[in-house]
Amino acid sequence: MLIPDIDAFEERAAIAQFDGGLSRREAEDLAAQSQGFVNADAYWQWLADYVVHRQPP
């Protein structure tokens, strides 16, 4: 898996939330899924693990 694109994640979530009428949680789940994650929790956990270990999990 490639390192997630944080800018694309934030942009997609913002668009889904404000233009799509989704809650922030739903919008972040959608943005995470667009990058191959199950949901936003999995996305943020991957990033946290990457920061701590300095290599993809």
Rank of each mutant, 00 (worst) to 15 (best):
M1Q: 06
M1D: 08
M1N: 00
L2T: 08
L2Y: 00
I3M: 03
D5I: 01
D5E: 05
D5L: 05
D7K: 10
F9R: 05
F9S: 02
E10F: 05
E11Q: 14
R12M: 08
R12L: 15
R12D: 07
R12Q: 11
R12G: 00
A14V: 06
I15L: 10
A16K: 03
A16R: 09
F18T: 14
D19T: 10
D19Q: 12
G20P: 05
G20E: 12
G20H: 02
G20W: 09
G20K: 00
G21I: 06
G21F: 08
L22K: 13
S23C: 04
S23I: 01
R25T: 15
A27G: 02
A27H: 00
A27S: 14
L30H: 07
A31E: 12
A31R: 06
A31V: 06
A31N: 10
A31K: 04
A32S: 14
A32G: 15
A32I: 10
Q35E: 11
V38A: 14
D41Y: 08
D41L: 06
W44F: 14
W44R: 07
W44M: 05
Q45Y: 12
A48Y: 04
A48M: 08
A48F: 02
Y50K: 03
Y50W: 13
V52N: 12
H53I: 04
R54S: 11
Q55W: 04
Q55L: 08
Q55Y: 05
P56R: 14
P56L: 15
P57R: 11
P57S: 12
